[in-house]
């Protein structure tokens, strides 16, 4: 009985107007949650946590660099799950959500690369190193851009979304291989590789709370931005449909 209710409600989510309304209600709460968590995290990261004894204040970059890197990868996993659902059950709202994840994931990959570069300059003395993590992050950025480009290149939005979903699946098989091969390559070619996170596992307890807050904040933000973008895509594609027309009729 309960199972049936859940199932019916889940299927209702596949209907654009229902999804749109849910996203409209949910997104502001997620943005709000992001703002609260980020405020706490940033305050702790910038004011409470003492400077590192080796890296001084530059280690504070960790609090945005690491959550962004995690989210760049977690975002891809989310997109993969959505892509599988979209390809198997052909639910249009899920296709749109999978596509909405790509620009956000690309944004986090970009933050990760940019802040990593800004961290590397004072610590290693160079903006860029052909380190395994850096290189695979750069490749991930290109995969994200490829997905966005492929989706945008189709005139038929649905077809574009499905084809790009196949690319997402191909990418998830490849990302571990790329990471592994690049790691091998750097250890082969460079001898002593600069390790970005040599201190990560030994991070002192007093340094942990801001990292946790920022990670939660970034996850909430991903969800909020995903819903916002998916909502816009629905609105754009369904602009001639009745539900959009009547919605705008009410608000106008």
């Amino acid at each position: 009985m309960i199972w049936k209710t859940i199932k019916v409600n889940f299927h209702r989510l596949g209907s654009p107007p229902t999804f749109y309304r849910l996203a409209e209600v949910l997104a502001p709460w997620l943005w709000g949650g992001f703002a609260v968590c980020a405020a706490i995290g940033l305050y702790q990261a910038l004011y409470v946590v003492p400077p590192d004894y080796q890296q001084s204040d530059s280690f504070r970059i960790l609090y945005i660099h690491v959550p962004s890197a995690w989210q760049a990868m977690a975002g891809y996993v989310v997109m993969t799950i959505l892509a599988v659902i979209a390809l198997v059950w052909r639910i249009r709202t899920v296709e749109i959500m999978a596509m909405a994840g790509a620009p956000i994931g690309a944004a986090f990959t970009f933050i990760c690369l940019a802040t990593g570069s800004l961290w590397g300059r004072p610590m290693w003395g160079t903006w860029w190193a052909w380190d395994a993590r850096l290189t695979s992050m750069l490749v991930l950025l290109f995969i994200y851009l490829g997905i966005m480009g492929l989706y945008a290149a189709f005139e038929d939005r649905r077809k574009g979304a499905r084809v790009a979903c196949i690319l997402i699946l191909v990418g998830i098989v490849n990302i571990p291989i790329i990471h592994f091969s690049v790691e091998w390559w750097t250890t082969l070619h460079q001898g002593a590789t600069i390790r970005l996170f040599s201190g990560e596992s030994t991070l002192h307890e007093s340094m942990m709370p801001p990292l946790v807050w920022m990670t939660i904040a970034v996850k909430l933000m991903f969800g909020a931005a995903l819903l916002d973008r998916a909502r816009n895509d629905l609105l754009d594609q369904d602009r001639r449909k009745g539900w959009v027309q009547s919605r705008l009729g009410e608000t106008a």
Partner: peptide, 25 residues
């Protein structure tokens, strides 16, 4: 901060990208 330029530029990039993700939709 020591290394103030690097720290603030990083946080600035983060803030700018997040803000763009909020405003653009």
């Amino acid at each position: 901060f020591e290394y103030a330029f690097y720290v603030w530029t990083s946080y600035g990039i983060f803030a700018a990208v997040i803000a763009w993700q909020f405003i653009q939709p």
